[in-house]
Design a binder for these strands. Structure first.
Length: 286
DNA sequence: ATGCCTGAAGGGTTCAGA
């Protein structure tokens, strides 16, 4: 089972990249963030395209900002929108969505940015992370916490730690909040796979940051032990950050082996005969 | 120059992102 997470920075703008990527990478489960539209608009925009590819989907959106979704072709059950008891700014934003896919509880998350340390938004970020920890603590033993965490777990996860001193994403309270979540027994499967390599998932659009590989690793897949033990590959799909019209984030990908009991979830019928089947090409520039 | 791109809202520019 292939699980991925991708902050698409406006799904409407990203359709020309998202659909070919689905065809080429063939993920079984996709967590999306920063839809920047309502779930109704998401359905109008992509529902038919997703269903033609065999994906069930759930979305939690709002106009203009935020928005998360889960796509799955290995079942999509017990969908839960939002964080129970979580804070708002001031209203509860569209930042959390969970569903059970192929026997795994999947969370698609867009953690608040924080903006400036010690700001109201920063306090909101920390409160939100605590509410997330409480929600995950209640969850089943087989779970993945996927998304844009807006925290670089360690100095190795930013291109220049000195440049980030005093900025969000690297402050001790943010990292402590992430560690409290990880302390529930989650494992950062990409870092486990690439313990010493420089791995980034986000590069600023400006100043050729991607081309110079000056980025951050803030998009994570955290897995409980039973799921982490099944990981056979974990990587960042940098190809999706190249070319024309990319998001500023790249997808994070994990391949899981079959569960020990061999049950990867309900059988899903294949796409209907008339559905698009092509393997569109990603842009080949750079 | 220190918000260098990009996206969204909605109004002729501003905010947000990380």
């Amino acid at each position: 089972m292939r699980i991925s997470t991708w902050n698409v920075n406006s799904v409407k703008q990203r359709v020309p990249r998202l659909l070919p990527w689905l065809d080429q990478r063939a993920p079984d489960v996709v967590c999306l963030q920063e839809l920047k539209l309502t779930e109704e608009a998401f359905g109008e925009l992509l529902g038919a395209e997703l269903e033609a590819r065999g994906y069930a989907w759930a979305a939690l959106g709002e106009k203009s900002w935020n928005g998360v979704a889960i796509l799955s072709r290995v079942g999509l059950e017990d969908v839960e929108a939002g964080l129970a008891g979580g804070p708002g700014f001031p209203h509860q934003e569209a930042r959390a969505l969970a569903a059970t896919c192929g026997g795994v509880r999947v969370h698609s998350l867009y953690v608040p940015n924080g903006r400036v340390p010690d700001s109201d938004h920063y306090a909101y970020k920390l409160e939100w992370l605590e509410a997330l920890r409480e929600a995950i603590a209640k969850g089943p033993a087989d779970a993945v916490v996927c998304g844009d965490m807006n925290i670089a777990p360690a100095d190795a996860d930013v291109f220049d730690p000195a440049a980030y001193v005093g900025h969000t994403h690297v402050t001790p309270p943010e990292r402590n909040a992430l560690n409290a979540l990880v302390g529930l027994g989650l494992r950062d499967v990409v870092r486990e796979r690439w313990p010493d390599q420089q791995v980034f998932t986000y590069w600023d659009y400006r100043a050729g940051m991607f081309h110079k590989n000056l980025g951050m690793r803030i998009d994570l897949i955290l897995a409980t032990a039973p799921v982490a033990d099944r990981v056979r590959a974990a990587w960042v799909d940098r190809q999706a950050r190249k070319g024309t019209g990319p998001s500023d984030h790249a997808p994070v990908m994990v391949d899981l082996d079959t569960a020990p009991d061999g049950d990867i979830g309900p059988m899903i019928p294949p796409p209907s005969a008339g559905a698009p089947r092509g393997r569109a090409k990603l842009p080949q520039s750079e």
